[in-house]
């Protein structure tokens, strides 16, 4: 990952949180991710549109195993299993987020500079509060951290940067999840099926919208 960006981000957080000042980047010795190769190509302007694409296909994934554990824990905090559908990590969202932050395009490179420092921060915060990495703490303990950072508008100033990271990560998790077959079923998308005619809305939908 881009260490200068990480350090800058950590410094910004530390400036408003005195207790974070002792934290040093990479103290564990585990790099979060391999660098995206300089000059890494994308899928090009004429990719095959009828083949099956999978994360890791168009460009290499870069997250380390420990980072993937943190990603999985965060994904499942945001989208846990419930009666309607399984948790995000059960349907490939970790691989998707790895694909996203490993992509060579400008928007994804920018998101990488938010996500990787965020993953590092959340492990550090977990260590500070519970003496364990985020993936190893209980659901109740994760919730304690999440409650502080899940709302950008309401987060205390010392959590403002972490809240921005959480918003970005939540959007990625949602996009990754609701585009899978189980995610589409959960949210109630019933299209993408061939119909011989299009009937328009059912009566109950019209009634609900005050139209019948």
């Amino acid at each position: 990952m881009d260490r200068r960006t990480t350090i800058k981000w950590m410094f910004a957080a530390a400036a408003s949180v005195p207790q974070l000042q002792g934290l040093s980047y990479g103290a564990t010795g585990d790099p979060l991710a391999r660098e995206v190769a300089a000059g890494q190509a994308g899928y090009g302007t004429d990719p095959d549109l009828v083949k099956v694409w999978k994360p890791g296909g168009p460009w290499p994934l870069t997250l380390s195993e420990p980072a993937r554990r943190t990603v999985a824990a965060l994904c499942d905090l945001i989208i846990p299993a419930d009666d309607a559908s399984p948790a995000a990590s059960a349907v490939g969202v970790v691989e998707f987020i790895d694909e996203w932050i490993s992509a060579p395009y400008p928007n994804q490179r920018a998101d990488r500079t938010i996500v990787l420092p965020g993953l590092e921060w959340i492990d550090a915060e977990s260590q500070k509060r519970f003496k364990k990495k985020f993936a190893d703490i209980s659901a109740a303990q994760r919730a304690k951290i999440a409650d502080d950072i899940c709302s950008p508008a309401n987060a205390r100033p010392e959590f403002a940067t972490a809240a921005k990271f959480f918003s970005k990560f939540r959007d990625l998790t949602a996009g990754g999840f609701y585009t899978t077959p189980v995610g589409m079923k959960d949210i109630g998308y019933t299209g993408n099926v061939s119909l011989s005619k299009f009937d328009g809305p059912p009566l109950e939908a019209l009634k609900k919208a005050g139209l019948a």
Partner: peptide, 15 residues
């Protein structure tokens, strides 16, 4: 589906 595309089909400078 979107889920079957790289980056869930999102636009990039190449597409």
């Amino acid at each position: 589906t979107s889920g079957e595309a790289p980056l869930r089909g999102t636009g990039t400078p190449e597409k």
